[in-house]
Design a protein around this nucleic acid. Structure first.
Length: 546
RNA sequence: GGCCCCAUCGUCUAGCGGUCUAGGACAUCGGCCUCUCACGCCGAGAACAGGGGUUCGAGUCCCCUUGGGGUCACCA
């Protein structure tokens, strides 16, 4: 079943200036998101009298799902993939899957200098790691210059764009003046109606001839009705003086060309939307629906910034997607966490990928920005760690161990180690860290642990344990445990802890570890004996009698 | 600063006018389990920013204030 879609106002046909009184206060997709009903001046709200019919429609039409659902993620390869981008990609993928549509990857590399091949590869790697597979692409804007050029020509030819010969310096001066006078800077249209040919040979940029009549709002699938403020819209630049097309221009050309039906992107693009809508209309392209997602904020409440990575790292988060892999997060956890950040489905917290793809609805996306919470993220990761089979975990561990200087190969031993620590750690990196006890003998014994658990009779007990291990080995965990219990019964007042803790300290140097019997089994008989001997030699001997 | 957006526990959120003495999750604090540490289980504290309206009735609708955020390029 297809979800109710956001449609253009059914009661507001082109030409109709007065919304009927029966106008629904609630719109199907989401409560509180009104269309014309909420207009500032009811009665003439959303119709603009049009000198140019092509450019005007009653209401911002949101063509719904009478065309195939196609969404896109369009990162620009200027650095690592930002977590905000990850979330945008996730929402797009989930939306596409839920709607049975296509997810397209487009690379916005029109920029000069700032783009690097390395960044692109890292973005692709991040997406692959997270299992965010694209159905088409990656398409690169740098391969589509001819398309932009011809579209620009057509706009120029029809008079909807014009050449502007103002120099960057002149414009900058005007901007500074406006700022000094506390005015909003807006291009003054100096070149709008220049006689043809007058400026031949001088460098120019191409500007969009912004229509005088604009719709008063557009409808956003997440944020609802967004007013359009004509004061803020000037004749913006479509192509730079070097001929390269600008972002706002490429986006529209590409989205239209690729048949994008829903533009799901970050909040920070809301401001661009009116310009883009007008460009769609100038071209006569069908407009997509827009959905602007609230941004992800850092713990300080402001938009995540790549520049503040150092601060974030101290708090356990990162702006870089791939960094979470280095920190030992599982891709399922990352997807679950970011999907759930700003989107919810009742009280559910854990979502399998299939569930997400089956449940995701734009109407369940919240309107306010959300702050990342590293604790919850870790908790989720811990959940997925526990859910992952030991052998699989063992396969992922070597890089994390290698980072600590412990070469290791996946195998039964590593699987056992993974099993021993997966409920004690929240990340793969933590598993590796805790597993160090299996890769090197303790270099010291925690003073606190010794003080608390190393008693006068400990050396004696340890000696008995040594004999026990020497006699029966360490492979039979339950049997060994039984033997320990008997030993405790006979020599330690029946308290297993009185035996176990000193042994634990001897073997691990610490008072905390996985089950002692599992630890011994993984260590192996020889190593256990070695460590017991060492402890016996270096820890305090029996207290003087009396 | 102009414009725009947002506002329920510390954080993520449920809530779509009465079922709210506001639910769940993370975190925190107790307890249980227990060879330690964890896991798990049980329990506790913790929120409708403030003020006006509308309504028989408002966390839910409207307005204002306050607070937070976003955006103001020949970047994307």
């Amino acid at each position: 079943m297809r979800p109710a879609s956001w449609r253009s106002c059914p009661s507001c046909p082109p030409g109709s200036a007065t919304p009927p009184s029966s106008w629904p206060r609630r719109w199907p997709q989401r409560s509180g998101r009104t269309c014309c009903a909420g207009a500032r001046s009811p009665g003439s709200a959303c119709t603009v009298d049009a000198p140019r019919p092509l450019l005007v429609r009653a209401c911002t039409e949101v063509p719904a799902m009478d065309r195939p659902v196609r969404v896109r993620f369009a990162p620009s390869p200027t650095g690592f993939l930002h977590v905000g981008g990850v979330r945008t990609a996730i929402f797009n993928v989930l939306f596409a899957r839920r709607q049975g549509g296509k997810f397209i990857l487009r690379i916005e590399d029109t920029d000069h200098e700032r783009n690097t091949e390395e960044a692109l590869q890292q973005i692709l790697e991040s997406l692959r790691w997270l299992g965010l597979a694209w159905d088409e692409g990656p398409l690169r804007q740098s391969d589509r210059k001819e398309l932009y050029r011809s579209r620009l020509e057509s706009l120029l030819a029809s008079g909807q764009a014009y050449r502007c010969y103002c120099s960057a310096a002149e414009l900058e001066a005007k901007r500074q003046k406006a700022i000094a006078e506390k005015r909003t800077y807006k291009y003054d249209r100096t070149c709008r109606d220049l006689p043809a040919g007058a400026q031949d040979g001088r460098p120019y940029v191409v500007r969009f001839r912004m229509p005088d009549q604009l719709p008063d709002h557009f409808d956003d699938l997440i944020k609802g009705r967004i007013p359009i403020e004509p004061e803020n819209l000037d004749d913006w630049i479509l192509a730079r003086s070097d001929g390269s097309p600008t972002y706002n221009f490429c986006v529209v050309v590409d989205d239209a060309d690729m048949g994008i039906s829903h533009v799901i992107r970050g909040d920070d693009h809301v401001i661009n939307t009116p310009r883009q809508i007008m460009l769609y209309r100038a071209f006569g392209f069908p407009e997509p629906s827009f959905a602007h997602m609230p941004l992800v904020h850092g713990p300080d409440g402001s938009k995540l910034s790549k520049r503040r990575e150092a601060e974030y790292r101290a708090l356990g988060i990162s702006v870089s997607a791939l960094e979470y892999r280095a920190m030992g997060y599982l891709p399922q956890a990352v997807v679950n966490y970011f999907a759930r950040l700003g989107w919810s489905h009742g009280d559910q917290e854990i979502f399998s990928r299939a569930e997400l793809e089956g449940m995701f609805e734009l109407k369940d996306v919240g309107k306010s920005a959300s702050v990342m919470n590293p604790e919850k993220f870790k908790w989720l990761n811990a959940h997925y760690l526990k859910e992952t089979p030991d052998a699989e975990l063992a396969g992922m561990l070597p890089p994390y161990l290698a980072a600590l200087g412990f070469p290791a190969e996946p195998g039964p031993r590593l699987a056992r180690i993974a099993g021993a620590f997966k409920e004690r750690a929240k990340t793969l990196a933590e598993i590796a860290e805790q597993a160090r006890v299996f890769f090197e003998a303790p270099s010291a014994y925690e003073p606190k642990a010794v003080q608390k658990n190393w008693k006068a009779d400990s050396p004696g007990l340890l000696g008995r344990v040594r004999a026990l291990v020497a006699a029966r080995g360490v492979e039979d965990e339950p049997g060994l445990e039984q033997a320990f219990r008997e030993l405790a019964e006979a020599h330690a007042g029946g308290k297993l802890g009185a035996v176990a803790q000193p042994v634990r300290i001897a073997l691990t140097g610490s008072s905390a570890s996985p089950s002692l019997f599992l630890v011994m089994a993984i260590l192996g008989q020889d190593e256990v004996l070695r460590r017991l001997d060492r402890a016996l030699a270096s820890l305090p001997g029996p207290a003087p009698q009396g």
